[in-house]
Design a binder for these strands. Structure first.
Lengths: 220, 220, 220, 220
DNA sequence: CATGAATGAGGTTTCATTCAT
DNA sequence: GATGAATGAAACCTCATTCAT
């Protein structure tokens, strides 16, 4: 059993080493400009070895996305737990996402650029993994929103599931604008920094029950 | 001059014919699974001829995106003009975008899937065209927001440019979720229809000055 | 010695188990579409273990062919012994081959399809085995023919070795037509069944001394 | 029209040049040991160009086989026409096949070695071509046999289609033994030359009506 | 004896783009 | 202007075999 254990750990370790290398290369050159050969050389393994750990190049990409996603999920869960009211928790979530996006700009860029296309070709196995993980993290936002409705900090005229989804998706998409979208606001003289930093303030009234009070009063 | 005119018109017509064909094929099979050969056959032209009208495959894709974008821009501008207050105009814009996305699902799907990647490779010429068009349509939202601030229907604690951008981008991204995002809400039992239809209600308080009044009162 | 014996028997048994599995897989999917991995999984052994029993994939294929060949040889030898005259023995051989081919269609198909190519790459060891076995079975046909010449039932104007070879090879090739050859006669409305069943009647005059008498008289 | 004609001729010519080169390489190194790259280099064309003329490597192989097959068919048809009786025509056919096989040993070797396998993977287009050609040449043997039955030179107790097929297929397979089959007779001291030269004499009684007379009397 | 992780060569095919006619 | 033949780079993935454990 000890042996099987070590085997398992070694396998997991090597898998991670490969993901590390692939991540590095994908970040710097983009999915299409990195070949499996390149990745193999980076980790100093044979090309075929990569296929012992990942079914395909797409699947390796998925693993990268997935690892960060889990990481992000854990991190948010932890941070959110410090919020007092439901609204506060939602706001922490938004800020955490923003923070994460800024600290992992290369990741989010790659995600927005390639994920839409690659996710289309996703194999059934990966799709299953994805669904399961989605199931795992979804309840968190939902609970926060419900909590907020109950404690009176969050608006109560929308389906809590929907409210949660909106907040999460909007934040995620806003913080990862695709290159041509970035143009739009930069052409108007608004920096990416301002653009993301103001988001919580913008969204607050759409979430809070009494925006005056909860959001610090919007009138000026 | 008359001859040059006719020439110009004919050229423009043929260009559009090509865009039509490419659009049809890209919609049904995706960007990568359609070759220039396929498109040439569809329009009954030689492969080389396509290159008389478009510098590259990417550029042809850009032309498709661009044509619809202009179309959408014109359509919204017209509809928005019927709004009374600034807030009403913004709301009309949101609803128009939603309506457009639902009527052109194949287009928006293709846009979200391939545009992020292709826009990265965009040539300078197309990039310029894009910037200019962005410049052309941006003032509209901005003006609506400013109008709303002035007539007291829109919140006044945010840079009007930023507010406009948020509303536009959020709406656009929300109505065109990528496949894996779609999973998220469908897994929670929320249909795409509900998901887009409730968006105006969700966003309203984030835009309106006095949400109680402007958005029909959110408490229930 | 008893231990060595058991070892030997066990080894032989395992070898056969592997051949069984490989046969099954090769029959259903063809040589190229079956990997050593597949075979290993089928017998529930490690991939490396296969190489303890067979030098190479080709060699394993050879073993399959060889085992059936021996089996066929034994079976024919036994059946032929019941023939009275030389001609009768030759005829029994022909019919036995036909019968065998029909009962082992998957084997003969695989043989005609892959053997030509694989036999080219045959290692010296296997080639030697093959030669020795050929040596073992060849005399049988030869003897039958000679017996027939002596008892006056078989034609005497041809080298008996040649006659034996012709009959054996013709029968074997005719009963295992390659797919494109099968087309030929099926296109003319002749079924495989008819095609093989009539062969003895066709060949008889080429073997018998007085075809009128021996072959039942060919005129009608 | 003249231009289209020239285009057509040039295309045909180039196609043949490619077949020539491929044939040469396949003959000397075998199908598997020749890459499309090798062939492209041999004809001094780009690799992709080959695919303008042949759908796949298999299809190019098919074209080689096919060209020779047509050639053989024409040649036999011509020669056979000089025969007087039906039996004579059949005999000419047999001898022509033998002659052809000896003059094109490299071709027949390659045919027997690789065709069985490649024909399995044959695309529908090629399969269709093959069926049509088979249809074209089949009637010839059949007619010869029928003629022989009518003029009393060929046995009349077998379906003439079957008789024709037997003769053709047997001859073809006998003259193109696979390597391991060759072993069999060489091990018994019979040369390939003797082996093929005696075939007509062996087969004659199986075809002729009165073998004594027609085949020169078989008793010695 | 048994294993299975690691290897890495190897080849087909596709397709955007060019350019001579 | 229109054509379509020619190009050739580029990359994925498979799998027989080896060898350390």
């Amino acid at each position: 059993m000890a042996i099987a254990d070590r085997r398992g750990r070694e396998k997991e370790q090597r898998r991670n080493t490969i993901i590390d290398a692939a991540e590095k290369l994908f970040f710097s050159r983009g999915f299409d400009n990195v070949s499996m050969e390149d990745i193999a050389k980076e980790v100093e393994l044979g090309k075929g070895t990569l296929y012992l750990y990942f079914k395909s190049k797409d699947s390796l990409f998925f693993a990268i996305i997935f690892r960060r996603w889990m990481d992000l999920g854990e991190s948010i869960t932890e941070k959110v737990s410090h919020g007092k009211t439901g609204l506060e928790k939602v706001q922490i979530m938004i800020r955490s996402l923003i923070e994460y996006a800024r600290e992992n700009a290369d990741y989010t860029d790659m995600f927005t650029t390639f994920w839409p296309q690659i996710s289309l070709r996703m194999g059934e196995e990966d799709a299953q993994t994805m669904r399961e993980t989605a199931m795992k993290y979804m309840p968190r936002v939902h609970n926060d929103v419900v909590e907020g409705i109950e404690d009176g900090s969050v608006r109560n005229d929308l389906d809590p599931r929907l409210l949660g989804i909106y907040v999460e998706m909007i934040t995620f998409y806003i913080i990862t604008p695709n290159p041509s979208a970035k143009c739009s606001f930069e052409a108007q003289g608004i920096s990416y920094d301002t653009y993301v930093e103001m988001l919580p303030q913008f969204l607050c009234p759409a979430v809070a029950r009494y925006s005056k009070k909860e959001c610090g009063g919007q009138d000026q």
